[in-house]
């Protein structure tokens, strides 16, 4: 883990409100794993507004070229300031941070379920899964067509992509979790990924879910996994202060410890952002 001012090698708009940034950061790139993130400073000078850094997941890492890529959506003050940083200038980041996704044993198939800005970490994950010869399929959802980001990244990797949009402008009209559940019932081609309810036991045994997106979506996807007996990992989001494990700001309630003990709250930045889906107490 390092804190560094890294040169911005590339900074492009990739969709409405979405940007991709590439940082030259050889030492951080060496050990980075899928599911990890960087904590990036959006403005450095007084009046320090925004004051805090922003956590953004790694969408791709090139250890040989020594680069880190992120994809982010302009949400507010921080990401708006970030979008102003020109190529060639330097960005101050800390990373890589957080606990990565755990790889499944050989022979399993990975189902990647991503919503909105939860999609990027799944791209890096898909790349590393394929290196380990683990097959992956992506189910991507967003509010509208333009926000279904990173489809090309998955295609380049040869990962089949299924899309759902809330407004029906692209792919399945509805939630990506319904789309994923649907695929087991109506689409024979993808049946082996999710299985029907009847054959859940035999087929689901081969699957692993990786889920990242808005809370409602993650909760639904985690419930789907539980119903089908499929192990699932979720990558959670919370407002972060330090991202170093010190401020205790980004905690989530998990049920790995008896309620009332001090370990009830775990830090998204340190024990997470990836948690076993069954540990999370969804609110």
């Amino acid at each position: 883990m390092v804190q560094e001012k890294a040169k911005i090698l590339l900074h492009r708009k990739i969709a409405r409100d979405h940007y991709r940034m590439r940082l030259k950061a050889p030492s951080a790139a060496r050990g980075a794993r899928p599911g990890q993130f960087i904590h990036i400073r959006c403005r450095e000078e007084s009046p320090y507004d925004p004051l805090l850094r922003r956590p953004i997941s790694l969408v791709d890492v090139d250890p040989t070229g020594g680069t880190l890529d992120i994809v982010y959506k302009v949400m507010g003050l921080g990401t708006r300031a970030l979008a102003q940083m020109p190529e060639g200038s330097k960005a101050d980041f800390i990373g890589p941070l957080g606990k990565p996704f755990a790889f499944p044993p050989k022979g399993k198939r990975a189902v990647l379920i991503g919503g909105g800005v939860g999609i990027p970490p799944l791209v890096f994950l898909a790349k590393e899964l394929l290196k380990k010869k683990i097959k992956a399929t992506a189910f991507l959802g967003a509010r509208t067509k333009e926000w279904v980001i990173c489809r090309d990244d998955f295609r380049k990797l040869g990962v089949p992509v299924h899309v759902a949009t809330d407004d029906g402008t692209l792919g399945f009209h509805g939630s990506v979790v319904d789309r994923a559940a649907e695929s087991g019932r109506v689409a024979p081609a993808t049946r082996h990924f999710l299985g029907s309810r009847d054959s859940a036991a035999s087929v689901a045994g081969d699957l692993v879910f990786y889920i990242c997106g808005p809370t409602g979506m993650m909760k639904a996807a985690a419930a789907l996994a539980r119903r089908r007996g499929i192990p699932a990992q979720v990558s959670l989001e919370e407002r972060m202060g330090c991202a170093m494990g010190c401020c205790m700001g980004c905690v989530v309630e998990v049920n790995t410890e008896p309620v009332g003990s001090h370990a009830r709250f775990q830090r998204v930045c340190t024990e997470g952002p990836v948690f076993p889906a069954e540990a999370v107490l969804w609110r």
Binding site: E238, V252, H262
Partner: peptide, 10 residues
């Protein structure tokens, strides 16, 4: 165990 979230706001 601390307070419920959100615990911080910028």
């Amino acid at each position: 165990s601390g307070n419920p979230v959100p615990r911080i706001y910028e």
